[in-house]
Nucleic acid binder design. Structure first.
Lengths: 110, 110
DNA sequence: ATCCTTTATCGTGGATGTGCGATGATCATT
DNA sequence: AATGATCATCGCACATCCACGATAAAGGAT
């Protein structure tokens, strides 16, 4: 059991999958995404009326989702309309599809 | 824009999806899972020889994956053999399938 | 020019994540 | 009993996350 010191560089896909997963790793953000996908789009204020959190907190979650690429915001002063970023959404979908693609049902465990 | 104070309780599915996503939110853990799915099973030491991390760090990541339910470990002293937990793996697969199930391609944004 | 509405950003405090070396636990071998 | 191999756990640093209230930014209405 000898440790490697080679500084492994993860594949781009691995890095991106981890980024998407982190964005999805909080119940509030999942709820926001669910809301966005059912309503198609919505404003920040709509979410404040639904989630028991301060407006600043929700804004922060929206920022994280935007930085992960899962949503996009269109400024429409004084409101901002958020939607799913379809392109990246499908990208994430494919990443997770690939990740879970292995069929273990036929493999006896060792 | 009036804030709700009702203490929302997230659905069990939402909570579990978040838990799975958190487990998948780190490149090291994704690499471990990829390794496990290609090799079927492996020992802790095998991973130490592949990843440039201390044994304790890898053990910690394995613990998180185990607590999330994605893998299981079978003690075989002095070694421990880790495998994918097929049942929960498929559960996670279904959660993400459902999450990404929406077809936005046909929806014009608002 | 001054409010009002809506949203983003800042600063802060507490919790959690991530890496490490050191140490403990377990069991086979000697 | 003592040693060696393998792995988990502990304790420690440092960074990031998460929630909050306060404040800033932007633009419409008065």
């Amino acid at each position: 059991m000898k440790r490697t010191n080679k500084p492994i560089s993860y594949s781009k896909t691995t890095e991106e999958t981890a980024r998407f997963a982190k964005a999805l790793s909080h119940p509030v953000r999942l709820t926001i995404l669910k809301h966005l996908s059912s309503q198609n789009c919505c404003f920040t204020g709509d979410l404040v009326e639904v989630l028991p959190l301060a407006q600043s907190t929700i804004s922060q979650h929206l920022k994280e989702l935007k930085e992960a690429g899962l949503i996009q915001g269109e400024v429409n002063p004084p409101k901002v309309k958020y939607c799913i970023d379809v392109e990246n959404w499908n990208k994430a979908k494919n990443f997770f599809d690939t990740l879970f693609n292995e069929d273990f049902s036929k493999i006896s465990c060792c």
